[in-house]
Write a protein that binds this DNA or RNA. Structure first.
Lengths: 205, 205
DNA sequence: GCGCAATTATGCACTCATTGCAGAATTGCA
DNA sequence: TGCAATTCTGCAATGAGTGCATAATTGCGC
């Protein structure tokens, strides 16, 4: 990585940090891109060569969870079916929860609940992730899943996790207990994927 | 409904029609709010007293499908469990497909695929719908579903339908055959909800 | 070290969505 | 007909995002 790249990465990080700080202190809408650029000591125009939009600041790293899931699909044990693979991936992700510690995560979560633009972006990312996972799943299990089934399975999986989270995140009490939350989410996913578990062949009809 | 209300409704419709026409002809981004207002013969400023934003033009009616689903929940047969109710609702919705005929529907679908702001709004609506349905479901089946399970079930249901649609809508060939599409979506939902069907009590673990 | 080509960073001007405000135009009802 | 409530509009701003032209940096070959 050249000096150029390193400097660019540093500036990028500075922008994220400055934004997090300003959002936290003054609120998302009250913070202008100009403010953020100024805090990171670059020109306002330059901001847009680092991030295409203000929302992007909150999603600086491509979601590693998608990659982890895709990896889990590739690394499946021969006996595992599609559902096992997804559930295994979910468990692994829960453990090395590096996303939970990011200083951005909490802020991001709060803003997703309150700022439409941010929520839109988050959901867009979710859909893209779903599509990506479904694609790999269909490729890995060509005998058991056609495109539509793979998408439905992934959708049900993500939907269940997401639905459970939607409720869990509304309850501050539960948020205080990450272990319990993870357990609840895992259970939701388990339940949603049950029909896919026991049958080696496609559950047609 | 007073003259005032009728006139207001007429103007509102005129805006939707004008927008649909302009979006269709020139594209979403190339059509400014000012253009739309001018086409409907009202001031640009006035536009914002009819719609809070440009996207809203594409979602003029509150989604009747949510209401239909909620009604289906209330009208359930005593023997029906949560999953049956959802599947029944899905079938009913498919039949009186009044949404499919709206001249807006096709355009909306295309724009959801291509315009981030529109997609964001659509997804937001989906999440709200999910929350609403889960709420009613939990209330109707207090013995079988807690808040989290209801949200997970609803999420799996909506996710499966949505995932299936995501794939189906990418294929112009399938779009030409609505009946087949509906069947595929129904099957996806069936599969996703299988575990909830046969067991009267909660499928704990 | 020097100089050139590629890559970045900026300033400026502009388009657009969206909002607050204040005054003009309409409408409903007494 | 006349007043009060409701709408409609123009005007001025704010703030995101973009195109363009120019200046500042950096990577490399000599």
């Amino acid at each position: 990585m050249s000096l150029r790249d390193r400097k660019r990465a540093r500036t990028r990080q500075a922008l994220v940090d400055a934004a997090a700080d300003l959002f936290e202190r003054n609120g998302y809408d009250q913070t202008t891109v100009a403010d953020i650029a100024a805090a990171a000591d670059i020109g306002t125009r330059t901001f847009f060569s680092y991030f295409a939009s203000k929302e992007e600041l909150l999603f600086p790293e491509s979601d590693s969870r998608v990659q982890a899931t895709v990896d889990a699909i590739a690394a499946r044990k021969p006996a595992d079916g599609p559902a096992e693979v997804l559930l295994t991936a979910l468990r692994n992700i829960g453990e090395d929860s590096n996303d939970m510690v990011s200083p951005l995560a909490g802020l991001r979560m709060r803003l997703i609940q309150t700022v439409p633009a941010v929520r839109g972006r988050a959901l867009q990312i979710q859909l893209d992730a779903q599509r990506e996972i479904a694609r790999h799943l269909a490729a890995e299990f060509p005998d058991q899943l056609d495109q539509v089934s793979a998408a439905a399975l992934t959708g049900a999986f993500v939907g269940a996790v997401q639905g459970a989270l939607q409720v869990l995140l509304e309850d501050p009490e539960r948020q205080a207990n990450p272990a319990a939350m993870r357990a609840a989410v895992g259970q939701a996913a388990d339940i949603a994927l049950t029909p896919w578990l026991r049958h080696g062949s496609a559950t047609r009809h």
